[in-house]
């Protein structure tokens, strides 16, 4: 007997919300050194078809005996056959995930958190600024934009990584550009073979002409990068309520109960991870918060 109703669209047990649901790994796609995308599907066929998430939300992935880690969903929210999580191997749980292969089973709870408000921004110019592992939570937006390109004005992706080898989803750039998404790809340091841009994500705003009346900024990446992206957006008269940031904190329960991910008055797992800068402004430059 399943612990959820047939109408349930999430892998969160109503009886025991900390109970993960089992999913089979279908394939593993290496993206960059120490970063791979795990494509998976729920073992329960009912949940497989009913599961829904919104771009920007995350799941808790778990391995028995190791623990759980909050991982953003990086796949297309309209793809009901599989769910993708792009994982960077930095800790005990994610290093254990790195040893999983196709056919292995993993625990999934979710989706949790708030999402990018793309539906509210039809007709707007969308400026996406991502750095490093900040691109995966933004990729579901690009799938949505490609599916309904005429609903948006300009869509610009600024994406930066440490080196050319660290760039993620490189095989998809062509499709994004063909769908009318402007790409600005940059690296912090290039080698002799790299003919693309070298520079940091916030400074790429210097290349853009933005109409503040119809522009929104979505950003995700290292917090220091986010801070300077916000500075550049504000300098271009984008208002704090039109700047959306996805924050990373140490999420544990996913339900806003344990307090591990508290940020000022917010729990990032429940009130975030996607916030407006207007919400976070008082807390953004507070040390150790």
């Amino acid at each position: 007997m399943t612990a959820y109703s047939p109408q349930q669209t999430a892998a969160i047990s109503l009886v025991s919300p900390m109970l993960p649901f089992r999913a089979e790994i279908l394939s593993v796609q290496p993206e960059a050194p120490l970063v791979s995308t795990y494509w998976m599907r729920f073992l329960d066929p009912e949940l497989r078809t009913s599961y829904q998430f919104k771009p920007g939300q995350f799941n808790m992935l778990s391995i028995p005996g190791m623990g759980e880690a909050a991982i953003s969903i990086s796949s297309d929210s309209n793809d009901h056959q599989r769910v993708g999580h792009t994982v960077r191997f930095v800790g005990n749980v994610t290093n254990a995930i790195s040893r999983l292969k196709a056919g292995d089973v993993i625990g999934v709870r979710g989706p949790f958190g708030t999402s990018w408000p793309l539906e509210d921004h039809h007709g707007k110019d969308i400026f996406i600024a991502a750095g490093g592992i900040g691109l995966p939570p933004l990729r579901p937006i690009l799938y949505q934009v490609m599916a309904q390109r005429n609903n948006f004005g300009r869509v610009v992706v600024i994406y930066g990584a440490r080196t050319p080898d660290d760039l993620q989803f490189t095989r998809e750039y062509k499709a994004w550009e063909e769908a009318g998404i402007e790409l600005i790809i940059t690296v912090d340091r290039g080698d002799e073979k790299w003919t693309g841009l070298v520079g940091v994500v916030p400074l790429m705003f210097y290349r853009l002409r933005m109409d503040p009346r119809k522009s929104v900024v979505y950003t995700c990446g290292p917090e220091i990068m986010i801070r300077f992206v916000i500075f550049e957006a504000l300098a271009r008269r984008i208002t704090p309520d039109q700047i959306y940031v996805s924050m990373e904190r140490n999420m544990r329960c996913g339900l806003g109960l344990c307090g591990h991910c508290q940020l000022g008055p917010y729990f990032v797992c429940k009130d975030g991870p996607v916030f407006t800068y207007e919400q976070l402004q008082p807390y953004f430059n507070v040390e150790d918060l």
Binding site: G91, N250, R252
Partner: peptide, 23 residues
Amino acid sequence: ASRLLTTRLQLLDMFAHPAAKEG
């Protein structure tokens, strides 16, 4: 000024792998 900011952010090595912090 813009080169100095670029250099500062490059020096910070923003995308360096952080220490393990998951549960």
